[in-house]
């Protein structure tokens, strides 16, 4: 699972390096996203700009990850490609997740991201 993490204050940006979030990797993806949230993370923003395919298994994995991360950390999404955005729109999951145009927009500024560890 290719996930890389950068912190910006209490916002943690997770760049998803996988091109597909599908039934073949849904369970591993859910666990990997869950494990990205640190105790001090208030907002976990998944940058999905490299993901060009997401099926209902992938959607289910995101919903499950949001529940697992719990009430103290918000799971948000950024950089949805056209194919991925459509799945959220058709299922109305775009009303459940906060969705940003890009990771940069999610952190609300243009300052460079600091590497974690």
């Amino acid at each position: 699972m290719q996930l890389s993490t950068k912190d910006h204050g209490e916002i943690r940006i997770v760049k998803v390096g996988e091109q597909r979030i599908d039934a073949a990797i849904a369970i591993q993806f859910k666990e990997a996203v869950r494990n990205c949230a640190a105790e001090t993370t208030e907002r976990l923003v998944l940058d999905l700009s490299d993901v060009n395919f997401l099926d209902s298994s992938g959607l289910g994995a995101l919903v499950a990850a949001m529940k697992l991360i719990g009430p103290n950390c918000k799971l948000e999404l950024a950089g949805l490609t056209a194919n991925v955005e459509r799945v959220f729109r058709l299922t109305r999951m775009n009303t459940v997740f906060r969705i940003h145009a890009s990771a940069q927009e999610a952190i609300g500024g243009s300052a460079p991201l600091a590497d974690v560890g």
Partner: peptide, 25 residues
């Protein structure tokens, strides 16, 4: 049918979207 996505966070469906997407598209 589309599962209820307006439910409370802990009640949100994690599956059941497959046939909805097939029949939508």
């Amino acid at each position: 049918d589309c599962p209820d996505t307006q439910a409370d966070i802990n009640e949100l469906p994690e599956g059941g979207f497959g046939w909805f997407l097939i029949q939508s598209l």
